[in-house]
Design a protein around this nucleic acid. Structure first.
Lengths: 187, 187
DNA sequence: GTTGCAGGTGAACCAGAGTTCACCTATACT
DNA sequence: AGTATAGGTGAACTCTGGTTCACCTGCAAC
């Protein structure tokens, strides 16, 4: 019954577009387009998929986005519908300029007091002038590192977020390759 | 010239499907479908979009996913092409069961030693039995909190990641609402 | 029962998707 | 000059997409 839904979603994930009527007939076993037409209308009512102004089938937001609830302290709402303030795609939340955005896996513990641990992924953006206080990916005196970007007067330096490490005052060259825009950790 | 690309990408983001030939004619100002046909083939060669087996236009992976480079310590590759090990969608990376996944904004500092700060978003999954050591969203004695899930013998308790807070030994009830699967932070 | 109705088939319809062919430029190259 | 060549128009074609209509079930409600 609602098995059809899963097959359509699978098709979307596999092919990166919604199936057409003929393809849904194959997915479901229906022999008439009208059966598909009615099925789609039910799915639209159920909020599973949507149609745009030309009637074309498009994925509903709930296929890509996940519900954003309130604060942790407020707890988990007993009825999710009640407190659902928003729905969000993590990609859209974190990424502004896809062209210049990359990810790097974190090695080492030099930023641990900033909540960036080994194994985390950082989302970085190239071609940005770093502001003081930004976390940057920098090449300094031949080595690469991730640190806070600081200024003392007009002298720039790099500060780790770990008392065991020392500030880095570049002697020869300081090449800021990218600015850290976000952090992602998976358990 | 390559302005057409951006208009097509904008259309995709706005309508959540790729435009058809007629729509691309409106986007670009072309007056013949063949001009679109040639444009699309160029974009396919350039890796901007793809066609599937039926010739239908689908977004290429690079529209949703971002390149995954190496480790931070290894630095930023001079040529991105060289070291691009993979490309990944953050949504797919973090979310396993979309049906039961939600996001919560973090308040308070009780998990700061685990690298979870106030203002971070946690990705949580409902309906999972927590394993010892998992970070959980729990209702204990009337209040909601996020803590490590621990066991001492067969007695369960909650442990914060902040020395300023004390372990919580539930007296009346301990209701695990969700297990934390990931953390996202945006700067 | 028989009445209603959700849910299926089958056929018709038009607009659009994707492709191909012939042809028409401008521009660059020797 | 002439001649490739990239990039556009215009028209033809087939197949599918989305919609609508008429009709045929089986099953539940009264």
């Amino acid at each position: 019954m609602e098995n059809y839904k899963d097959r359509i979603i699978s098709f979307y994930k596999k092919h990166r577009r919604m199936p057409g009527y003929k393809e849904i007939m194959n997915l479901t076993g229906f022999k008439s387009k009208n059966a598909v037409f009615k099925l789609i209308n039910h799915l639209v009512d159920a909020g599973i998929v949507s149609k745009d102004s030309q009637g074309k089938i498009i994925p509903s937001r709930s296929l890509d986005e996940i519900p954003m609830l309130g604060l942790v302290e407020a707890g988990f709402p007993s009825s999710v519908e009640e407190e659902m303030t928003d729905t969000i795609s993590i990609d859209n939340y974190l990424i502004e300029n896809k062209e210049s955005t990359y990810m790097l896996e974190v090695k080492g513990e030099s930023m641990i007091d900033a909540g960036i641990h080994e194994g985390d992924l950082v989302i970085v953006e190239r071609n940005r002038n770093p502001k003081v206080g930004d976390i940057v990916i920098a090449e300094v005196d031949g080595g690469w590192t991730m640190k806070y970007f600081r200024k003392d007067g007009d002298k720039v330096y790099l500060e780790p977020a770990n008392k065991k490490f020392k500030n880095i005052y570049p002697e020869h060259e300081l090449n800021i390759a990218a600015v850290v825009k976000g952090v992602v950790r998976k358990y």
